[in-house]
Structures are given as C-alpha cells and as structure tokens.
C-alpha cells in the first residue's frame, strides 16, 4: 500500500525553522527538478534535492534521516540554476545544522587513517569538520 502522508498545520513549525535558518522562502519551490538534474551528487543520494525541498515544504522532519543532506557538496550548481532563485545549499546546510547543533557528529575525523590525514589538503579537513561536525 502506498504511504499515507498526513498534512496538517502541526508540520509548519519544522518548515518555519528551516526557512529561518536558511533564509530561503522554501514554499516558493515549484518542484521543477532543475536542482536534481543539475546535482553532481544525485546518483549517490537516497532522495533527490527537489524531494528534499518537498519534504521540508510539507514539514516532514524525516528528511533529517536522509543521506542527501550530508551528500550535498555545497557546489552551488543548483543555486545558479533554480528558476525560483532559491539557494538549496543553504537549505541542506540548515538541515545538517539541526542535527549538528544537537552535538551529534556525522563523521569522526579522528577515525580517519593516518596516511589519509597526512595526505589530505588542510582545506578538505577543515571543510569536512565544518560540514560534518558540530
């Protein structure tokens, strides 16, 4: 059986929180799919970027469990293409921050193999820490 989606005003809170953190009027997303078609990471993702926007629009906080929010590479390809002028990378960041601010890290940098740590450019490590840890 298909899933049944409950839509009610109770879900507004999540939408409002993410809208505020990201500074984006998420209800403007017209679900055109340009972001998904543009995204370099989409083949690794469990939900597409447009689907991520849809779930936030409908206040479905399950979106926080999606791999997608961690896979967004902040490449801004969708940002320069969205016909509604939305910045999806900011929405993904807001979703990550909801988790990271609860002091739940997404990765453990210390667990990386030593030779990797030596070889990786600093900007990769710092950026990784900024994006994946609180």
């Amino acid at each position: 059986m298909a899933n049944r989606l409950m839509i009610s005003t109770g879900n507004e809170e999540f939408l409002e929180r993410i809208s505020e953190m990201s500074g984006q009027i998420i209800t403007l997303c017209e679900q055109c799919g340009v972001c998904s078609g543009s995204c370099p990471m989409v083949s690794e993702m469990d939900i597409t970027p447009s689907q991520m926007m849809r779930m936030v629009q409908l206040g479905q906080s399950e979106v926080l469990r999606a791999k997608t929010i961690w896979l967004c590479a902040s490449c801004f390809t969708c940002t320069v293409r969205c016909p509604r002028g939305l910045d999806l990378s900011k929405v993904a960041e807001a979703l990550r921050q909801v988790i990271l601010r609860q002091a739940v890290d997404h990765i453990d940098i210390k667990a990386l193999p030593r030779d990797e740590l030596v070889e990786l450019p600093q900007i990769a490590l710092v950026a990784g820490m900024r994006k994946f840890t609180g």
Binding site: C32, V34, S38, S50
Partner: peptide, 23 residues
C-alpha cells in the same frame, strides 16, 4: 514533468544529451 537541467552536445556524433529529473 521536469524542467531540463542542462543540455550537452558532443562535437563528434552531433548527439545532444539532456539531464532532467522526472519529478
């Protein structure tokens, strides 16, 4: 239903490739 994200063309065989999400 999906707005096309990009069109790439190959100079060799003239084929054009579309990328789009079927939303």
């Amino acid at each position: 239903r999906g707005r096309v994200a990009e069109v790439n063309s190959s100079s060799s065989d003239g084929k054009v490739t579309l990328k789009v999400e079927d939303t």
